[in-house]
Amino acid sequence: MKDINKILLLISVVAFTATVFTQCASQQNATSAESATKGVPEYVLQKSGAQLWAESCIRCHNTASPATFSDVQWDVAVKHMEIRAQLTRVEAEKVLEFLKSAN
């Protein structure tokens, strides 16, 4: 058990530092628009905001229709979901754009 604890700690620390460093490095070499789409597979980039909304927003709870909120409220709610529901930045941006265009 003690070994497992140590291994787990080690894996966490290594993974953590590695992500922070790689992410920060890529961030500095790119503008924010570029870094959001960097490494994103083509099939995701091709999906529309409406499609991502339909696929993603139904996984945990019923899907909110765009009419639920105003633009300003969606700004906050989608940022909340980007964090809580672990959306990728690309998904969050596309879904937000769709919700604002369809409410």
Partner: peptide, 26 residues
């Protein structure tokens, strides 16, 4: 929550623990 970079967030405070899916999400 501090968004360090796209797809990388740092949270501090009282947090729902993502141990499985029930408590954090459902």
């Amino acid at each position: 929550n501090y968004s360090i970079a796209p797809n990388l967030n740092l949270r501090a405070g009282k947090i729902l623990i993502p141990f499985g899916i029930f408590f954090d999400r459902l």
